[in-house]
Structure formats: C-alpha cells, structure tokens
Write a protein that binds this DNA or RNA. Structure first.
Length: 574
DNA sequence: GCCGTTTTCGGCCCGACTGTTTTCAGTCG
C-alpha cells in the first residue's frame, strides 16, 4: 500500500510534530548515565542523571510543555542547572550533544548497551567475552537458553534478567505520591467531579502494578484523551465507554472507571477487589453478581454490604481469607490505626548508621505523639553500618540514662539491633545485653544458608534469655531480593515458648513480617511490634507502611506491642 | 551533577567477609 502524503489540512508547524514524552526525555537521560558509567565517570554524577530521569518519569505534566512555557525545572527534586539545561536541549533540538559525543567514542556494542539502563556495562562485557557474543539480542538468546545461568552462575543470570525486563511494578510507598498526583490530574485536567482510589492500592498491597480509580464525570471521552497526555504521553492499553487503562511513563498501569452517584459504592467495591474476596462472598452465598445486575441504588459500600447482610469489610481485609466468615459472625477486627501507636521500638542514630542523634530522634518522635522510643543501633560485628563496640554500647547506655533525666513527655528505651551470628549466638555478651531494656535481634549475614540451618540459627538465638524481638524476620527486600529461607511455624512456636516476639519492619522495601506471616504470628497469640527501623527523623513516618501490613494481617491494637502505654510496654519487655 | 537545620564547598556511606567466575567482585545495612 502506497504511503499517503501528509494531509495539507494538518498543522504544518514542524516543532509541534514531535512532542517528546517524559518517557523519551527520561530515556535520553538514562542512556547518558549508562554511557558515563561505561566511561568511568564520577558515580555521583551518574546517579544524578538517573535520579533526574526518575523525576521526569514521575511527573504528570509534560516536561516538553514545561520547557516550552519556560517553566523552572530546577524546582523539581534532583534537577539542577546542569540537567535542566540538558532537558531543554533535548526538547528544543531533539537530541543531546554530550550524548552523541559519548556514543561516538564507544564501541557499537557498548553504545547498544546504553539503551538498557539497568544493565551493568562492565558485567555484560564480561559475559560477552566469556560467551563470545557481542549483542543484546545474543545476550537475550543465551539467557533464554539458560546458558548464562549454567556457565556464569545464578547471580549474573538474575542481573541480566532483571535488566532486560522492564519493571512494571513499584513499591506501595512510592505509589502514594504518584496516586496523589494522578488524582489531582483526573480532577484538574480530566475534569472529574469525584475521584476515589481503588484496587490493590486501596487494599494497601505492598507492590503495585496497576493503580485504579473510580471517577464521576459528565463526559468520559475527554478524560480518556487527557489520560493519554499524562506525562507528555501515556500509551492507551485499552478503553471502552466506561473504562480506560493507560501505561504511565513510570511503568505501572493506570485504570479509570466511570461510576454514577447512584452506583458509586458498588463500582468502588468491584474496583477494589480482590477477586478472591468476591469468590469468598459467592462461596458463602452472597450474590454480588445479582446486585450488579439489579437496578438498585448503591451509593456507598455500606449499602452494598448491607444488601448482602454484612457489615462493611475494611479494604485491607478483602483477600478471600477469613473476612467473610468473620463479617457474618459480626467478628470483624477493629484494625489497628496509626493513631493507636504510642512508640517506636527500632531506630538508629549517628552512633551507628543513622543520620540523627538520640535527642533529635526523641524530639521527632514526641512531635508524632509518641511516649517512648527504643534506640536500637547496630551491634559490633556489623562493621559497615558502624556497629557499636561493647565499650561504645556501655557508653550509650549511660548517655541514655542522662538524656532521660532531661526529657519530658517521652522516654528513651535502651536497646540494640543485635546480630544473630552464624552459630546462633548473639553479638554482645550476656552481661551487656542484661543492661538493655530489650533487644531486636537480626540476621545480617550468610543469607544463603539452607532453610534448616537458618531456622536452627534463629531458634538457638531465641534460647538466649535476652532475645526479645526478631528483627526483619526473612531479610527480604521487595523488588530486589527474596528473603532467606526459614521455617516460620517452628520459629513462632519457639517464640511462644521463649516469650519472644516479632516486628513488622515498616521500611517500605522490607515490610517484613509480611501480612501473611504477621497473621500467623497473631493467630499464635503473639504481640507483634511495628517498628520503622528509621535511620533518620523523617523515616519515623514509615510507621504508616507498617500499619498497612498490620491491618492486612488483621491486627487490632491489642495485638501490637507498641500500642501499649509506657508502663505496660516496660512491663511486657521484662 | 545535586544539594544545604553541616548552605556556595565538599559531601554524596563504606569496609569486612564470602565464595567461587580461585583472586576480586558481590554483598550486607
């Protein structure tokens, strides 16, 4: 079929032809970062370009338009004068001279690698040499054939796989800001009259692939049009008269569903999920599908659940576990809330790898309404994190006593994040551990032990009478690293026998215990701590993420150790 | 290259251990 000549009716302005999306601009910045990395440039400079690229990808506004309207790009985090200039050059000329120069100076295979921002050029060149290949397509073939794993080991294989597959998942904590921006966008640019988040995000699932909103508007088509302009351009994945999905520049999907006032509650419930929850409702004889077919009004979720003869089930519990049975028995838990927390039992200070002093952490905690905090700096064997020597911990104990004399309204508890050594012994002698109010004991080494060995290691550690809380029980890092293998049921049984407990580590990439694990611990009757593991005053705000997990696990404030008052917690810890 | 409750320079972890690709790169917080 012959090419059709461009229509003469169209706007002929050449500069308007190619409007770069934020994705394309960010891509140039990450490509540049890759080439700088290959050229052995200053790592901080490389990081700066990567960070700026992420910022560009996260913006709902079109950076192209921002440049054209002469907006100040340096107002955005991680974009200073230099990178703002680079972005302007990309938008105005379509390319970046520095990038072209660097490309011209490297071999074609290295230049090709720069298209894959997460591929480490050094490691790939190593693979190229050993396998006698020189292209990304060959690399992909070798990966698929299992040769990289077989010849070069699982770690390199993992690296290549991660780098070649574009990530379409984000941590819940990172999506919080994106969801807020998307909601604004839908109201202001889309003209939506009412917007409410649903889906996994509303159920507070720890990793998000798709962001869902239910919206109300008189005209859905302009919303769909506008969504495709999100971040300059967002690819339309699917759309019909009442539902549209785009892929945002940052990688995750955004789905918007139209609802009326009369059916708002039903639409919200259906968009919130999870499928397993609907399955559990159906299995218990609650015919949600019939309600959906009816002409009845369901303006709120309350009205939907009421029609099913049930109280409202909190979104965090809608996973098809025991929530429907508990709702039927009028036995839904009153889930723990952020305001129920009275303290935080795991944080670091400048004594090890934290950014703030004991006094600063205490002041910041007091501002958040806490009555106590526990300082749990790293122990001596964790050199990289500046773990405290025995002498240093003795000194910190004395210092905390002095600080407590001066503090008003908040008490600092003495603790340490004590390494569980390979043989299951703790990283400080008993006579020192005895001086602490409690301990957080964690594994920070030898993740590769077998399930049996790792479990034994923790069980042995719990034999120590000074063991109080198991820190980040599995060591997982979401989207980066699976945890080490443990037999949690045996460890829970030992915790019951030895009067130990667990924490939900609220660090957004840990969330460890997971909701499923926290549920098991709760069912065993253990009181679980929700701890931020904060390394700065700002990270005390991670508590919200831990509370999300606790709620998904069905925890009430009675199940949470640091919902106790100061006298109660002191008693519970002795 | 960015940034500032250590603000216009000098920071932005980094240091010991692990384990096999057996000699240094990856990994822990």
């Amino acid at each position: 079929m012959p090419q059709i000549a461009p229509s003469l009716h169209r706007d002929p302005a050449p500069s308007a032809d190619k409007r770069l999306s934020n994705t394309e601009i960010a891509h140039q910045l990450t490509t540049l970062a890759q080439l700088l990395a290959s050229a052995g440039e200053n790592p901080f400079k490389i990081k700066a370009y990567r960070r700026a690229a992420t910022t560009v990808q996260s913006l709902p506004e079109s950076v192209h338009e921002l440049v054209q309207s002469d907006a100040d790009l340096t107002a955005f985090a991680g974009i200073g004068k230099g990178i703002a200039g680079a972005i302007r050059e990309i938008v105005q000329s379509g390319n970046l001279r520095m990038l072209d120069r660097l490309k011209a100076n490297v071999s074609p295979e290295l230049a090709a690698l720069s298209e894959f921002p997460r591929l480490d050029p050094k490691r790939v060149q190593q693979i190229y040499r050993k396998l006698g290949i020189s292209s990304v397509s060959a690399l992909r073939e070798k990966l698929d054939a299992g040769e990289i794993g077989r010849l070069l080991g699982p770690r390199l294989e993992h690296h290549v796989r991660q780098a070649l597959i574009t990530s379409h998942e984000l941590l819940l904590h990172d999506v919080d800001d994106i969801a807020a921006a998307a909601e604004d966008f839908l109201r202001q640019r889309g003209g939506a009259k009412r917007v409410e988040a649903a889906g996994d995000f509303r159920r507070r699932v720890e990793v998000i692939r798709e962001l869902n909103f239910v919206i109300q508007t008189d005209d859905f088509a302009p919303v769909v049009d506008e969504l495709q302009r999100y971040g300059g351009h967002s690819e339309l994945v699917r759309a019909d008269a009442e539902r549209a999905t785009v892929r945002l520049p940052i990688g995750i999907l955004l789905t918007v569903e139209l609802a009326t006032t009369a059916r708002w509650g039903l639409a919200l419930l259906l968009a919130t999920g999870a499928e397993a929850h609907f399955g559990a409702l159906e299995a218990a004889g609650h015919d949600l599908a019939k309600l959906a077919r009816s002409r009845q009004r369901f303006p709120t979720e309350e009205s939907v659940y009421a029609a099913l003869g049930l109280p409202v089930i909190p979104p965090e519990l809608r996973e098809g576990l025991d929530e429907v049975a508990r709702a039927e028995a009028d036995d839904l838990p009153r889930l723990v809330a952020l305001t129920d927390l009275r303290g935080d039992l795991h944080m670091h200070t400048t004594a090890s790898d934290g950014a703030h002093s004991i006094e600063q952490m205490a002041a910041a905690a007091k501002e958040r309404g806490y009555r106590y905090i526990g300082i749990a700096d790293h122990s001596q064997s964790l050199k990289i994190a500046g773990g405290l020597s025995e002498e240093a911990l003795w000194g910190q104990i004395r210092r905390i006593d002095k600080i407590n004399e001066k503090l008003d309204g908040i008490r600092v508890l003495k603790s340490a994040e004590v390494d569980i050594r390979i043989d299951g012994t703790l990283d400080y002698p008993d006579e020192l551990l005895r001086e602490l109010d409690y301990t957080v004991c964690s594994i920070h080494s030898r993740f590769g032990l077998s399930r049996e060995q790792q479990t034994e290691r923790i069980l042995r550690a719990m034999d120590n009478e000074h063991f109080t809380i198991l820190g980040h029980a599995t060591g997982r890092l979401l989207l980066r690293r699976p945890g080490y293998q443990i037999d949690l049921e045996r460890i829970i049984a030992q915790a019951q026998a030895r009067r130990c407990t667990f924490e939900i580590n609220a660090s957004p990439d840990r969330l460890d215990l997971s909701a499923a694990h926290a549920r098991l611990a709760r069912e065993a009757g253990l009181k679980i701590a929700i701890n931020t593991d904060a390394h700065s005053t700002r990270e005390l705000d991670f508590m919200r993420c831990g509370v999300d997990v606790a709620r998904r696990a069905g925890l009430t404030k009675k199940d949470v150790l640091n919902c106790l008052t100061l006298p109660q917690v002191v008693k519970a810890l002795t």
